[in-house]
Design a binder for these strands. Structure first.
Lengths: 250, 250
DNA sequence: CGCTACCTTGATTTCGGTCAAGATACGTGG
DNA sequence: CCACGTATCTTGACCGAAATCAAGGTAGCG
């Protein structure tokens, strides 16, 4: 339905996208970095990229399809940690302990790149720009995790879902895909789990947003009809916003 | 009440603690890193270390006291992002954009160190071990943010609070302080906000845990009476754990 | 000593969870 | 290409944990 066809990205495009390298590296430096990136065979839906406890050897980046990471507690409950779309990197949480603390699974058939970490670390020592870039990337993950933290701690089901759709929209836009018309690559259950709500609630929220003509869902295809009101929904909606916990600053 | 008196840590101890440098640096390297660390004047309770939007120049580490970071949404609601105890670093979320995305406030009178980031970045380029260490540190923040994400998405008020107390306990223990007897440096309101619940609920949870003789609270002084049962409370309590969302893997 | 900020406790409400059917879509094999 | 079985999604009725609302109580500070 959507233009899902720029799968066959060039190798250079891959490192440019996945490492999100800004304009700060020379062409020569980019070529060196490119030699690091290994493509992997296609990964079937529901197959693992790595599993909790696996030795950490590489960072990964999605080239096509979509990947989720999740943890499993002692009772076997799955907690979805994140979704990764083409051009996005994952596995950075494993640097700390040298083992992957979470499992990564393809939520739809996917291609991923592998970036051997020891080589990346070496190169970062040699190419100052690459080091800076890695610091920024890791910091960016921290920033967005913190925003998610606020989402999960303070927001209603509707706000969570609206924010989620907006996040996907932004991420697709960054990749030059339509920000208003795209596919949800993951199941309702995964979305619900990620947002800390139930699939039933996701369904009901979607229902409401469709009735309000804010968005349209046909299976997993979303169309955002009213971006403005979707943003409102994402930030407390029309419910006469007034401060609850005002700052305790002096 | 507790042994809160190893305030006057040596400068070397400061870099060792705050940067959490493992045994991987030589003494000479440690000395070099130490020259970076600047002490700051004491910061009064409720005074800011930096504010949202401030240019990012340095990372910070708590030397004594405690600091919280928080964001404020359009309606003026505060969201506490994290608490930082002596020996812990904060401000890493600002590397990404070059501006502090959140505000940092002393929750009690505090001393902090400042680590100029441009110098740290330069040194990381020269000292491979330092670079590795920075990568690990940033990754560690990502890991613990992800655990918090699960906490906020899936856990009950009691589990959240129990986990919070255990986290403090572990962090104090790491600093050679008692893991069973310590002070909560922040208000109930801040704890509640951080955990995504209300102060009333925090009060009620504390009440229950005291009745069960799991812990004892006198003002802000906590004593953990039954670590084992506190861990149980933190992980679903006695409520006959059985799997809800079993993994959808193949 | 009195004020203010913080904490606790109780009564009531509510959002979202749980349970239980159905409906729809999907992959597989005949 | 169609029929069947399984997954997933939706919808409804009911329930419960925690939020909200509303007093009080306590403690630290000028």
């Amino acid at each position: 339905m959507k233009e899902q066809k720029n799968y066959a990205v060039s190798c250079q495009a891959c490192s440019l996208n996945t490492l999100c390298i800004p304009h700060s590296l020379t062409d020569e430096e980019i070529d060196i970095v490119d030699t690091l990136v290994k493509r992997k065979n296609p990964i079937q839906r529901n197959r693992l990229v790595f599993e909790r406890g696996d030795k950490f050897l590489s960072l990964y980046a999605v080239r096509a399809g979509a990947v989720k990471t999740y943890s499993v507690d002692q009772e076997g409950n799955e907690s979805v940690i994140g979704f990764y779309l083409p051009g996005e990197m994952f596995g950075m949480d494993a640097i700390y302990s040298g083992k992957h603390p979470n499992t990564a699974m393809a939520v739809e058939n996917a291609y991923v790149c592998e970036i051997p970490y020891n080589r990346l670390e070496e190169l970062s020592g040699e190419i100052q720009n690459l080091q800076s870039h890695m610091f920024r990337t890791l910091s960016g993950v921290i920033s967005s995790d913190q925003q998610l933290q606020v989402l999960l701690g303070k927001k209603t089901a509707e706000e969570r879902f609206a924010n989620f759709v907006l996040s996907l929209s932004n991420r697709y836009q960054k990749r030059r895909l339509s920000p208003t018309l795209f596919r949800l690559p993951m199941s309702r259950a995964d979305i619900a789990n990620y947002l800390g709500i139930t699939p039933e609630t996701v369904s009901r929220v979607i229902h409401r947003l469709q009735v309000s003509e804010i968005l349209l869902l046909d299976g997993n295809d979303v169309q955002i009809l009213d971006l403005h009101r979707l943003c409102q929904s994402a930030h407390g909606g029309i419910k006469a916003g007034m401060s609850k916990t005002t700052i305790s600053a002096h």
